[in-house]
Design a protein around this nucleic acid. Structure first.
Lengths: 152, 152
DNA sequence: CTAGGTGCAAAGGGTTTGCTACAAC
DNA sequence: GTTGTAGCAAACCCTTTGCACCTAG
Protein backbone atom coordinates (compact mmCIF):
# COMPACT_ATOMS: atom_id res chain seq x y z
CA UNK A 1 0.00 0.00 0.00
CA UNK A 2 1.34 3.39 -0.99
CA UNK A 3 0.90 6.68 0.78
CA UNK A 4 -2.18 7.63 -1.16
CA UNK A 5 -4.67 7.69 1.68
CA UNK A 6 -4.73 11.40 1.15
CA UNK A 7 -5.87 10.81 -2.39
CA UNK A 8 -8.97 8.96 -1.25
CA UNK A 9 -9.94 11.91 0.89
CA UNK A 10 -9.49 14.26 -2.00
CA UNK A 11 -11.75 12.10 -4.12
CA UNK A 12 -14.52 12.12 -1.51
CA UNK A 13 -14.12 15.79 -0.73
CA UNK A 14 -14.57 16.67 -4.37
CA UNK A 15 -17.73 14.61 -4.57
CA UNK A 16 -16.33 11.70 -6.52
CA UNK A 17 -17.15 8.08 -5.84
CA UNK A 18 -14.67 5.73 -4.35
CA UNK A 19 -14.76 2.93 -6.88
CA UNK A 20 -12.53 -0.12 -6.83
CA UNK A 21 -11.19 0.85 -10.23
CA UNK A 22 -9.97 4.16 -8.91
CA UNK A 23 -8.34 2.54 -5.94
CA UNK A 24 -6.62 0.06 -8.21
CA UNK A 25 -5.26 2.72 -10.53
CA UNK A 26 -4.05 4.66 -7.54
CA UNK A 27 -2.34 1.60 -6.13
CA UNK A 28 -0.79 0.67 -9.45
CA UNK A 29 0.66 4.09 -10.05
CA UNK A 30 1.86 4.38 -6.48
CA UNK A 31 3.60 1.03 -6.50
CA UNK A 32 4.90 1.41 -10.01
CA UNK A 33 7.26 4.07 -8.81
CA UNK A 34 8.40 6.15 -11.75
CA UNK A 35 6.66 7.26 -14.90
CA UNK A 36 4.14 4.78 -16.20
CA UNK A 37 2.25 4.62 -19.44
CA UNK A 38 -1.48 4.02 -19.43
CA UNK A 39 -0.90 0.58 -20.87
CA UNK A 40 1.37 -0.31 -18.00
CA UNK A 41 -1.15 0.89 -15.46
CA UNK A 42 -3.74 -1.26 -17.16
CA UNK A 43 -1.51 -4.30 -17.05
CA UNK A 44 -0.81 -3.87 -13.37
CA UNK A 45 -4.46 -3.43 -12.50
CA UNK A 46 -5.52 -6.38 -14.62
CA UNK A 47 -3.34 -8.71 -12.60
CA UNK A 48 -5.82 -8.12 -9.80
CA UNK A 49 -8.93 -7.21 -11.76
CA UNK A 50 -8.90 -8.56 -15.29
CA UNK A 51 -12.02 -6.68 -16.37
CA UNK A 52 -10.30 -3.34 -16.18
CA UNK A 53 -10.63 -1.42 -19.40
CA UNK A 54 -8.10 0.93 -20.94
CA UNK A 55 -10.70 3.66 -21.28
CA UNK A 56 -11.34 3.51 -17.56
CA UNK A 57 -7.62 3.85 -16.96
CA UNK A 58 -7.52 6.99 -19.05
CA UNK A 59 -10.60 8.41 -17.39
CA UNK A 60 -9.30 7.72 -13.91
CA UNK A 61 -5.88 9.13 -14.73
CA UNK A 62 -7.53 12.20 -16.17
CA UNK A 63 -9.63 12.65 -13.07
CA UNK A 64 -6.69 12.19 -10.75
CA UNK A 65 -4.78 14.70 -12.75
CA UNK A 66 -7.60 17.22 -12.56
CA UNK A 67 -7.54 16.77 -8.81
CA UNK A 68 -3.82 17.39 -8.76
CA UNK A 69 -3.02 13.89 -7.53
CA UNK A 70 -1.28 12.79 -10.68
CA UNK A 71 0.72 14.49 -13.40
CA UNK A 72 1.80 13.43 -16.81
CA UNK A 73 4.71 14.28 -19.02
CA UNK A 74 5.17 13.79 -22.73
CA UNK A 75 8.19 11.81 -23.75
CA UNK A 76 9.34 10.45 -27.08
CA UNK A 77 8.12 7.10 -25.79
CA UNK A 78 4.65 8.43 -25.13
CA UNK A 79 2.69 9.90 -22.25
CA UNK A 80 3.85 8.96 -18.78
CA UNK A 81 1.88 9.38 -15.59
CA UNK A 82 2.99 9.51 -12.02
CA UNK A 83 1.75 10.21 -8.57
CA UNK A 84 2.31 13.67 -7.14
CA UNK A 85 4.03 13.20 -3.82
CA UNK A 86 4.20 16.31 -1.68
CA UNK A 87 7.70 17.62 -1.33
CA UNK A 88 9.37 14.46 -2.56
CA UNK A 89 11.78 15.18 -5.35
CA UNK A 90 12.93 12.33 -7.49
CA UNK A 91 15.38 12.95 -10.20
CA UNK A 92 16.48 9.90 -12.04
CA UNK A 93 18.98 8.82 -14.61
CA UNK A 94 17.78 5.90 -16.66
CA UNK A 95 20.29 3.76 -18.48
CA UNK A 96 19.12 2.95 -21.97
CA UNK A 97 21.33 -0.10 -22.09
CA UNK A 98 20.55 -1.95 -18.87
CA UNK A 99 17.38 -0.13 -17.92
CA UNK A 100 18.45 0.50 -14.38
CA UNK A 101 17.51 3.75 -12.69
CA UNK A 102 20.00 5.81 -10.77
CA UNK A 103 19.37 8.64 -8.40
CA UNK A 104 20.65 12.07 -9.17
CA UNK A 105 21.12 14.83 -6.67
CA UNK A 106 18.65 17.66 -7.00
CA UNK A 107 21.60 20.00 -6.99
CA UNK A 108 22.23 19.56 -10.70
CA UNK A 109 18.72 20.37 -11.68
CA UNK A 110 18.57 23.25 -9.28
CA UNK A 111 21.46 24.73 -11.19
CA UNK A 112 19.82 24.09 -14.54
CA UNK A 113 16.44 25.42 -13.46
CA UNK A 114 17.94 28.52 -11.96
CA UNK A 115 20.09 29.22 -14.98
CA UNK A 116 17.15 28.85 -17.32
CA UNK A 117 15.03 31.04 -15.11
CA UNK A 118 17.59 33.81 -15.03
CA UNK A 119 18.22 33.68 -18.74
CA UNK A 120 14.75 33.16 -20.17
CA UNK A 121 12.30 33.67 -17.33
CA UNK A 122 11.15 30.17 -18.14
CA UNK A 123 9.92 28.31 -15.13
CA UNK A 124 11.11 24.80 -15.79
CA UNK A 125 9.09 21.98 -14.34
CA UNK A 126 11.69 19.87 -12.62
CA UNK A 127 9.22 17.84 -10.63
CA UNK A 128 9.37 14.86 -12.92
CA UNK A 129 12.68 14.83 -14.56
CA UNK A 130 14.40 11.83 -16.02
CA UNK A 131 17.71 11.97 -17.75
CA UNK A 132 18.40 9.26 -20.27
CA UNK A 133 21.78 7.95 -21.22
CA UNK A 134 24.28 5.22 -20.52
CA UNK A 135 25.46 4.35 -17.04
CA UNK A 136 29.08 3.80 -16.14
CA UNK A 137 28.70 0.02 -15.93
CA UNK A 138 27.37 -0.27 -19.45
CA UNK A 139 29.92 2.23 -20.72
CA UNK A 140 32.78 0.10 -19.51
CA UNK A 141 31.04 -3.11 -20.53
CA UNK A 142 31.18 -2.25 -24.19
CA UNK A 143 32.92 0.94 -25.16
CA UNK A 144 29.75 2.47 -26.48
CA UNK A 145 30.45 5.26 -28.99
CA UNK A 146 26.98 6.80 -28.59
CA UNK A 147 27.05 9.40 -31.34
CA UNK A 148 27.69 12.73 -29.75
CA UNK A 149 26.37 11.58 -26.45
CA UNK A 150 28.57 13.56 -24.07
CA UNK A 151 28.02 17.18 -23.26
CA UNK A 152 26.52 18.73 -26.40
CA UNK B 1 15.62 31.88 -49.81
CA UNK B 2 16.56 29.46 -47.08
CA UNK B 3 20.12 28.32 -46.66
CA UNK B 4 19.42 24.72 -47.54
CA UNK B 5 21.50 24.52 -50.68
CA UNK B 6 23.79 22.39 -48.62
CA UNK B 7 20.89 20.01 -48.04
CA UNK B 8 20.50 19.39 -51.75
CA UNK B 9 24.13 18.40 -51.99
CA UNK B 10 23.76 16.04 -49.09
CA UNK B 11 20.80 14.42 -50.80
CA UNK B 12 22.72 13.89 -54.03
CA UNK B 13 25.87 12.76 -52.28
CA UNK B 14 23.97 10.10 -50.42
CA UNK B 15 22.44 8.83 -53.64
CA UNK B 16 18.96 10.20 -53.18
CA UNK B 17 16.89 11.78 -55.89
CA UNK B 18 16.17 15.45 -55.99
CA UNK B 19 12.42 15.41 -56.31
CA UNK B 20 10.19 18.46 -56.24
CA UNK B 21 8.47 17.11 -53.17
CA UNK B 22 11.71 17.01 -51.27
CA UNK B 23 12.60 20.50 -52.33
CA UNK B 24 9.19 21.73 -51.25
CA UNK B 25 9.40 20.13 -47.83
CA UNK B 26 12.86 21.59 -47.40
CA UNK B 27 11.62 25.04 -48.39
CA UNK B 28 8.59 24.82 -46.15
CA UNK B 29 10.55 23.84 -43.09
CA UNK B 30 13.25 26.40 -43.81
CA UNK B 31 10.81 29.24 -44.27
CA UNK B 32 8.57 28.11 -41.48
CA UNK B 33 11.30 28.95 -39.03
CA UNK B 34 11.40 25.58 -37.35
CA UNK B 35 9.19 23.84 -34.82
CA UNK B 36 6.61 22.70 -37.33
CA UNK B 37 4.28 19.77 -37.22
CA UNK B 38 3.95 17.46 -40.22
CA UNK B 39 0.48 18.79 -40.83
CA UNK B 40 1.80 22.32 -41.03
CA UNK B 41 4.52 21.32 -43.45
CA UNK B 42 1.87 19.67 -45.59
CA UNK B 43 -0.28 22.79 -45.57
CA UNK B 44 2.60 24.97 -46.64
CA UNK B 45 3.63 22.69 -49.44
CA UNK B 46 0.08 22.29 -50.66
CA UNK B 47 -0.21 26.01 -51.26
CA UNK B 48 2.24 25.44 -54.08
CA UNK B 49 1.63 21.81 -54.93
CA UNK B 50 -1.84 20.65 -53.88
CA UNK B 51 -1.20 16.99 -54.65
CA UNK B 52 1.29 16.66 -51.83
CA UNK B 53 0.39 13.79 -49.55
CA UNK B 54 0.93 13.60 -45.81
CA UNK B 55 2.68 10.26 -46.15
CA UNK B 56 5.21 11.86 -48.45
CA UNK B 57 5.77 14.58 -45.89
CA UNK B 58 6.51 11.99 -43.24
CA UNK B 59 8.77 10.04 -45.53
CA UNK B 60 10.70 13.11 -46.59
CA UNK B 61 11.02 14.35 -43.03
CA UNK B 62 12.24 10.93 -41.98
CA UNK B 63 14.80 10.88 -44.75
CA UNK B 64 16.02 14.37 -43.97
CA UNK B 65 16.34 13.40 -40.35
CA UNK B 66 18.34 10.30 -41.23
CA UNK B 67 20.65 12.54 -43.20
CA UNK B 68 21.04 14.84 -40.22
CA UNK B 69 19.39 17.75 -41.99
CA UNK B 70 16.34 17.87 -39.78
CA UNK B 71 15.58 17.01 -36.17
CA UNK B 72 12.40 16.53 -34.28
CA UNK B 73 11.33 17.05 -30.73
CA UNK B 74 8.38 15.64 -28.84
CA UNK B 75 6.08 18.18 -27.24
CA UNK B 76 2.71 17.82 -25.56
CA UNK B 77 1.27 19.24 -28.75
CA UNK B 78 2.88 16.56 -30.88
CA UNK B 79 6.04 16.04 -32.86
CA UNK B 80 7.76 19.16 -34.14
CA UNK B 81 10.38 19.24 -36.86
CA UNK B 82 13.01 21.79 -37.63
CA UNK B 83 15.94 22.34 -39.91
CA UNK B 84 19.38 21.67 -38.50
CA UNK B 85 21.42 24.76 -39.12
CA UNK B 86 25.15 24.27 -38.83
CA UNK B 87 26.57 25.33 -35.50
CA UNK B 88 23.34 26.79 -34.22
CA UNK B 89 22.54 23.86 -32.01
CA UNK B 90 20.09 24.40 -29.24
CA UNK B 91 17.62 22.64 -27.02
CA UNK B 92 14.02 23.36 -26.35
CA UNK B 93 11.69 24.58 -23.69
CA UNK B 94 8.04 23.76 -24.18
CA UNK B 95 5.42 25.79 -22.36
CA UNK B 96 2.74 23.59 -20.88
CA UNK B 97 0.29 26.46 -20.88
CA UNK B 98 0.47 27.86 -24.40
CA UNK B 99 2.28 25.01 -26.09
CA UNK B 100 4.85 27.22 -27.74
CA UNK B 101 8.40 26.00 -28.10
CA UNK B 102 11.36 28.13 -27.16
CA UNK B 103 15.00 27.65 -27.92
CA UNK B 104 17.48 27.13 -25.14
CA UNK B 105 21.20 27.51 -25.46
CA UNK B 106 23.16 24.27 -25.31
CA UNK B 107 25.26 25.88 -22.63
CA UNK B 108 22.87 24.92 -19.85
CA UNK B 109 22.72 21.28 -20.77
CA UNK B 110 26.42 21.17 -21.35
CA UNK B 111 26.83 22.18 -17.74
CA UNK B 112 24.33 19.61 -16.57
CA UNK B 113 25.77 16.83 -18.69
CA UNK B 114 29.26 17.59 -17.57
CA UNK B 115 28.34 17.77 -13.91
CA UNK B 116 26.52 14.47 -14.11
CA UNK B 117 29.41 12.92 -15.95
CA UNK B 118 31.92 14.04 -13.36
CA UNK B 119 29.80 12.97 -10.44
CA UNK B 120 28.32 9.70 -11.64
CA UNK B 121 30.14 8.75 -14.81
CA UNK B 122 26.72 8.76 -16.42
CA UNK B 123 26.76 9.74 -20.03
CA UNK B 124 23.56 11.71 -20.49
CA UNK B 125 21.91 11.69 -23.88
CA UNK B 126 21.02 15.28 -24.56
CA UNK B 127 19.76 14.83 -28.10
CA UNK B 128 16.14 15.85 -28.45
CA UNK B 129 16.19 17.13 -24.92
CA UNK B 130 13.09 19.11 -24.05
CA UNK B 131 12.46 20.98 -20.86
CA UNK B 132 8.84 21.45 -19.88
CA UNK B 133 7.48 24.30 -17.85
CA UNK B 134 5.77 27.67 -18.12
CA UNK B 135 7.06 30.45 -20.30
CA UNK B 136 7.35 34.03 -19.14
CA UNK B 137 4.34 35.17 -21.12
CA UNK B 138 2.04 32.66 -19.51
CA UNK B 139 3.57 33.34 -16.12
CA UNK B 140 2.68 36.99 -16.32
CA UNK B 141 -0.64 36.31 -18.03
CA UNK B 142 -2.06 34.54 -15.02
CA UNK B 143 0.08 34.25 -11.95
CA UNK B 144 0.28 30.51 -12.34
CA UNK B 145 0.97 28.76 -9.02
CA UNK B 146 2.34 25.63 -10.74
CA UNK B 147 2.69 23.18 -7.89
CA UNK B 148 6.28 23.43 -6.76
CA UNK B 149 7.52 24.36 -10.15
CA UNK B 150 10.30 26.81 -9.38
CA UNK B 151 13.91 25.87 -9.01
CA UNK B 152 13.98 22.81 -6.75
C1' DC C 1 15.64 2.14 -69.21
C1' DT C 2 15.17 1.09 -64.03
C1' DA C 3 15.51 1.76 -59.32
C1' DG C 4 13.78 4.87 -56.19
C1' DG C 5 9.97 7.81 -55.00
C1' DT C 6 5.08 9.30 -55.03
C1' DG C 7 0.02 9.13 -54.27
C1' DC C 8 -3.61 6.73 -52.64
C1' DA C 9 -5.88 3.80 -49.52
C1' DA C 10 -5.80 1.19 -45.77
C1' DA C 11 -3.78 -0.44 -41.54
C1' DG C 12 -1.82 0.66 -36.89
C1' DG C 13 -1.14 2.39 -32.24
C1' DG C 14 -2.60 5.35 -28.66
C1' DT C 15 -6.40 8.09 -26.82
C1' DT C 16 -11.20 9.65 -26.57
C1' DT C 17 -16.24 9.26 -26.81
C1' DG C 18 -21.29 7.49 -26.96
C1' DC C 19 -24.03 4.51 -24.93
C1' DT C 20 -26.37 1.33 -21.62
C1' DA C 21 -26.11 -1.33 -17.55
C1' DC C 22 -24.54 -1.06 -13.01
C1' DA C 23 -22.97 0.22 -8.43
C1' DA C 24 -21.76 3.91 -4.80
C1' DC C 25 -23.84 6.86 -2.06
C1' DG D 1 -33.77 5.63 -5.71
C1' DT D 2 -30.31 8.86 -8.16
C1' DT D 3 -26.53 9.94 -10.42
C1' DG D 4 -21.96 9.15 -11.42
C1' DT D 5 -19.14 5.36 -13.45
C1' DA D 6 -17.53 1.26 -15.79
C1' DG D 7 -17.29 -1.63 -19.72
C1' DC D 8 -17.68 -2.19 -24.43
C1' DA D 9 -17.25 -0.81 -29.08
C1' DA D 10 -16.52 2.45 -32.25
C1' DA D 11 -14.60 6.80 -33.53
C1' DC D 12 -10.53 9.63 -33.76
C1' DC D 13 -6.25 11.43 -34.27
C1' DC D 14 -1.37 10.91 -35.97
C1' DT D 15 1.83 8.07 -38.25
C1' DT D 16 3.24 4.11 -40.98
C1' DT D 17 2.80 0.67 -44.68
C1' DG D 18 1.51 -1.90 -49.16
C1' DC D 19 1.14 -1.36 -53.69
C1' DA D 20 0.86 0.14 -58.60
C1' DC D 21 2.25 3.94 -61.23
C1' DC D 22 5.49 7.39 -62.34
C1' DT D 23 9.80 10.03 -62.89
C1' DA D 24 14.72 11.55 -61.93
C1' DG D 25 19.06 10.06 -63.11
Amino acid sequence: MGGHGHALETLKETGHRLTPQRLLVLEAIAEGGGHMGAEEVLARVQKVYPYMDISTVYRVLGLLEDLGLVTHITTPEGTRYELVRGGERHHHMVCRACGRTWDMSTRFLADLGEAVWKEYRFRADMAHFTLQGICKDCLSADNNPMSGGETP
